[in-house]
Design a protein around this nucleic acid. Structure first.
Lengths: 330, 330
DNA sequence: ATGAAAGCGCTAACAC
DNA sequence: GTGTTAGCGCTTTCAT
């Protein structure tokens, strides 16, 4: 069917090794031979067999990006940037999503050269177990043992909350703020929210800290509805993701409230949707490109040199004020 | 490093072949041997090497899904469903997006068992060229030669336009309607739009058919802005995708218009965003699950039996009226 | 029912 | 510079 190194070698009248050398850009090949080989390659439409190569070298050319189905507001951006950054380094990316989609994934973890762990859990553990180099990306659970490129979630939450305070809000609720995360780890988002309130001398009201199971508009909607139906109606809501915020805004409208006049809303992630929503959504933008590039760089380095010292890098974030947190005209 | 068949064989005191048989569920193995082998497998944590197997069998266990960067309103849904359907059939999916992202993708097309072509173009051609089984999914360019599971784009456009007509609109513009598609093929969406207008005895106004380069909110915004700035302001807009529609709606607001009072808007795709936008977005929902399941079924069949007769299947769609096309209160 | 041995296409030693 | 050769881990005749 497909032609092999041997076919090319025969056609070019050289040995297999020489063809291999040419294909892999090995320098010590005479110009003449190189041309002959390249001609043969072109004529036969030869393409190297990735599997044979991998079998031989043990290198796969693939990185895994493990992402949660939930709780990562900037997941799509991050994926795009990781794929891009990995591509530039000669790697393909397989994205393993969420907690165990039944089927082939769990049955046979795809062989990879390294793993970017954006979410702890079974999938990550399975891939990691094989002894592959790992870089923690985005998430919070810092073992300190391996490379980590993280978002300062607490800082982002603090800045968002501070922004709300600065625009004169005081009854500030939070959505998506687990008391503790999936792994029992306290969600740093909550910490930042509290820190900002404390710094401003504001006491959070009971029932103003609402969990959200997933990063979905519907979850934000539910939480918002409960908030507006409750006794202490907030005048602002900090949402741990833009999608939650979109849901919360709709809950506000359905409750007959105006945004931002009656209640201000801010999210995290800077998804494009928020630039087109009504009102446009204030948010905390995370530098996903930075995240992706650094993480891929660390990982590829570690694949080459497994004994590199572990580093911890923090990606920058920025508050982006838009209509949803504007100070109402007096 | 990782243990191999040979290791297992030695530990179990049998031959390599026997272990292979057990691992692959070959029936003719005595119960006693089977148990011994399974114990050894468990003890060594043996996992078959996918590359060696592929090298030997020529089967990869991977399907490619080629998607355009543009013009596919339901791409995300479709991807999810395809991954799911493929997983149930024992296949992994690599998603190849858009026209040539430079880098590894184009350099070395990933080896796959079959290709789902959602977008014609270089990527698709490269994968197809290798002689792999192909199923056309969603798109319109029917060669008639290979399996095809399509969306009746023309029908969807016609139904959407008819819906607008039914709510009393007459000056109906369309966004995303190329005069001809990327491959020079006439876009059937335009055909459906015209068909509906003609059936209602309405003549489309010049300048009411706007192209959109990509399926992006920004493209919808631009087109909408041009439309509202032009001489013949439409009282309704049919958009070939929900994202375009979202952009068009914002253009309307920025132009000081109300939706649906001044202008009605309908999209295609039923993305979740449209259920939370203000106003909620009317749309044509495509049964992506159906699309995905049928396409994967056809493809896996064809991988097993290359000589199956080509079939053409049409996925159903439904108009979902929401606020953006409501009849204004008189 | 099980074993022995021959490769799948490629790369890496090692010769020349 | 270039050719020879020995496997990488697995499946698959062909024996037994």
């Amino acid at each position: 069917m497909a032609s092999t190194l041997k076919d090319v070698a025969r056609l070019a009248g050289v040995s297999v090794k020489t063809v291999s050398n040419v294909v892999n850009g090995y320098p010590h090949v005479s110009a003449d031979v190189r041309r002959r080989v390249e001609a043969a390659v072109a004529e036969l439409g030869y393409r190297p067999n990735a599997f044979a190569r991998t079998l031989r070298t043990g290198r796969v050319g693939v990185l895994a990006l493990v992402l949660p189905d939930t709780d990562l507001p900037y997941a799509d951006d991050l994926t795009r940037e990781v794929v891009h950054a990995a591509g530039r380094a000669g790697y393909r990316v397989v994205v393993e999503r969420g907690p165990e989609e039944e089927g082939s994934n769990s049955t046979r973890p795809m062989p990879v050269d390294g793993v970017l762990v954006g979410a702890p859990g079974e999938t990550a553990r399975a891939l990691t177990a094989a002894g592959r180099p790992v870089v923690l990306i985005g998430g919070g659970s810092s073992d300190g043992s391996c490379d980590q490129v993280s978002v300062d979630v607490a800082g982002a939450a603090e800045d968002a909350t501070a922004h709300l305070l600065r625009t004169g809000r005081r009854r500030i609720a939070a959505i998506g703020a687990y008391p503790s995360g999936p792994g029992g780890v306290p969600r740093s988002g909550t910490a930042g929210y509290h820190r900002a309130l404390r710094a401003a001398g504001v006491t959070p009201l009971p029932g103003h800290l609402l969990p959200a199971r997933h990063d979905r508009r519907a979850d934000g909607y539910r939480a918002g509805r409960d908030l507006f139906a409750g006794p202490d109606r907030p005048d602002a809501i900090f949402c741990l993701s833009d999608r939650l915020a979109i849901g919360a805004m709709r809950a506000a409208f359905d409750a007959g409230l105006r945004v931002p006049a009656d209640v201000a809303v801010i999210g995290v992630g800077d998804i494009e949707e928020g630039r087109y929503s009504r009102p446009t959504l204030s948010t905390v933008a995370v530098d996903t490109r930075f995240l992706a590039r650094e993480a891929v760089a660390r990982l590829t380095t570690r694949i080459g040199q497994p004994d590199t010292a572990a580093a911890e890098i923090i990606a920058p974030h920025t508050v982006l004020p838009r209509e949803s947190t504007e100070v109402p005209a007096t």
